[in-house]
Amino acid sequence: MNKALLIIDYTNDFVAEDGALTCGEPARNIESRITSLCQKFVEEQQFVILAVDIHEPEDVFHPETTLFPPHNLRGSQGRELFGALQKVYLAHKDEPYVYWMDKTRYSAFAGTDLEIRLRARGIEELHIVGVATSICVLHTAIDAYNKGFSMTIHSDAIADFDAKGHLWAIQHFRQVLGGTVVQD
């Protein structure tokens, strides 16, 4: 079965200590695991998708504008991948199996060509990592479920703003979406 690694929103704004909408220390603690998984998938030449939130400055029509402070603004340092993941990406960004994808909604499937790219490669299994567990990771997993993909959530490679929301989402992945939750 072809598989893909889907890395969601692992950017400076969501992870760095001074990020505009940081998940804090829990997000920084998963850096080595996310980077390790990315490196493994790259070495196996498996499809790696970096689904990265993008916002325009002062976009009054985007629904998140009233929910969250400005974050992941186009062209900002906050939108760059965090830490060692940025180095791995830059070393492999021109490979045909590494794909940077802008997203404007919580789900990486909403308004993007993600499903088309996965189907074109015969991918049936998604490995999902990133932030925030109870928002973008969850909404992406729900859409993956609704589109018939099997999924593995790496619980040691996801993080959230809220510990209770994080744990609730992990249970939801298992009990409602039928995902496999692993921790290596």
Score class of each variant (00 low, 15 high):
residue 61 F to G: 13
residue 116 I to L: 13
residue 70 P to D: 06
residue 118 L to H: 05
residue 101 M to T: 01
residue 22 T to Q: 08
residue 135 I to C: 12
residue 175 Q to A: 15
residue 69 P to E: 02
residue 68 F to E: 14
residue 38 C to Y: 09
residue 18 D to I: 07
residue 53 D to L: 01
residue 24 G to C: 11
residue 88 V to G: 12
residue 181 V to F: 03
residue 15 V to S: 10
residue 94 D to T: 15
residue 121 R to D: 01
residue 37 L to V: 03
residue 148 G to A: 06
residue 152 T to G: 04
residue 127 H to C: 14
residue 8 I to D: 10
residue 162 D to W: 10
residue 170 I to T: 11
residue 97 Y to A: 07
residue 71 H to K: 05
residue 26 P to V: 02
residue 80 E to M: 15
residue 170 I to L: 15
residue 42 V to W: 07
residue 29 N to M: 13
residue 89 Y to D: 02
residue 112 T to S: 00
residue 87 K to L: 15
residue 15 V to H: 10
residue 3 K to C: 05
residue 79 R to E: 03
residue 40 K to V: 15
residue 176 V to G: 09
residue 56 E to S: 12
residue 170 I to W: 04
residue 77 Q to V: 12
residue 105 R to F: 02
residue 17 E to Q: 12
residue 119 R to P: 12
residue 26 P to G: 06
residue 167 L to A: 14
residue 141 A to Y: 05
residue 118 L to D: 00
residue 114 L to V: 03
residue 42 V to S: 08
residue 160 D to P: 14
residue 97 Y to S: 10
residue 99 Y to T: 10
residue 44 E to I: 06
residue 159 A to N: 10
residue 97 Y to V: 04
residue 135 I to W: 10
residue 80 E to V: 11
residue 78 G to Y: 09
residue 85 L to I: 13
residue 85 L to C: 11
residue 22 T to Y: 14
residue 109 F to A: 01
residue 46 Q to M: 13
residue 131 V to W: 04
residue 88 V to T: 15
residue 133 T to A: 07
residue 26 P to I: 03
residue 47 F to L: 14
residue 172 H to E: 13
residue 62 H to L: 00
residue 54 I to A: 01
residue 43 E to P: 10
residue 62 H to S: 00
residue 176 V to S: 15
